[in-house]
């Protein structure tokens, strides 16, 4: 569980996030949604420690991340996995070396054990025969899956996904969403997903926070989103005719 309490962040006097309060629950897909530029990525970066919030707390199972000494913060970081928008795979390393990297840095496994773990993680994300390829030699969807494999290599308690479906076709997006949901439930991970993909919202939204212009506008899940009367949320989620019709049909069924 990750609790965000009263989080506030400014850049050069411009408020990007204001008084965000939300609990990201364990074993659930927690979604951060909002328009581009609404502050989703800043929230994620404040949570993982890439940005220092101006006010507020981020508690990892009660541990105040930004208040703890650097040594303790490093220990918490070992419990965190993150999948970046572009994958952020190390270009100079093969797929196998990328997934093995956190194991090499933080585990005392032998080479055989590390290779076994790498193969397990790659198999878990449905990738085979790519071990010796470089990131430049694989597709965007495969890069995302390798990044997920690297993120789960150390059995993290928390995984963050920054727009996991960006640049992927709808079919591959569904595969990635299913994979994220499976991993979350299988390992009881606190998963935080930053997205503006409406398919993901409807498919995985077990716990959702909607951010609008840096403010926490709405919280709920994929069921309650259909019934919400929040104008900003409706304008964002049901922007397309397809989603408007879908909402209409869901409301009629009820």
């Amino acid at each position: 569980m990750i609790e965000v309490i009263g989080l506030h962040k400014e850049f050069e006097g411009r408020t990007v996030l204001n008084d965000i309060n939300f609990t990201f629950e364990t074993g659930k897909c927690n979604l951060v949604i909002g328009q581009s530029g609404s502050g989703k990525t800043v929230l994620l970066k404040c949570m993982v420690g890439l940005f220092q919030p101006d006010q507020g707390q981020v508690l990892y199972h009660g541990r105040d991340y930004h208040a703890m000494p650097e040594k303790d913060r490093k220990e918490v970081r070992k419990e965190i996995g993150m999948v970046f928008q572009g994958g952020a795979l190390f270009d100079s390393q093969t797929v196998e070396e990328n997934v093995m990297f956190p194991l090499t840095m933080f585990s005392k496994m032998s080479m055989e054990e590390k290779i076994e773990r790498v193969n397990f993680c790659l198999k878990r994300v449905n990738l085979t025969n790519v071990n010796k390829l470089y990131p430049a030699e694989i597709s965007g969807g495969m890069k995302k899956r390798v990044a997920i494999a690297r993120a789960i290599a150390l059995n993290p308690k928390y995984i963050f996904f920054d727009e996991p479906n960006s640049g992927l076709d709808p079919q591959t997006s569904i595969v990635i969403d299913d994979l994220i949901a499976e991993i979350t439930h299988e390992y009881g991970i606190t998963t935080v997903i930053n997205t503006h993909d409406m398919n993901s919202v409807m498919q995985m939204g077990e716990n959702i926070i909607f951010i609008y212009k840096g403010q926490q506008e709405w919280t709920g899940n994929s069921q309650s989103i259909v019934e919400s009367e929040n104008e900003n949320l409706n304008n964002f989620v049901f922007a397309s005719d397809l989603f408007k019709k879908m909402r209409q049909s869901l409301r009629e069924k009820k």
Partner: peptide, 16 residues
Amino acid sequence: TMRVTEQIDALDIMGI
């Protein structure tokens, strides 16, 4: 290039 493609952020988040 590692900075703009978030590879350095990935290292930092790992605690490296």
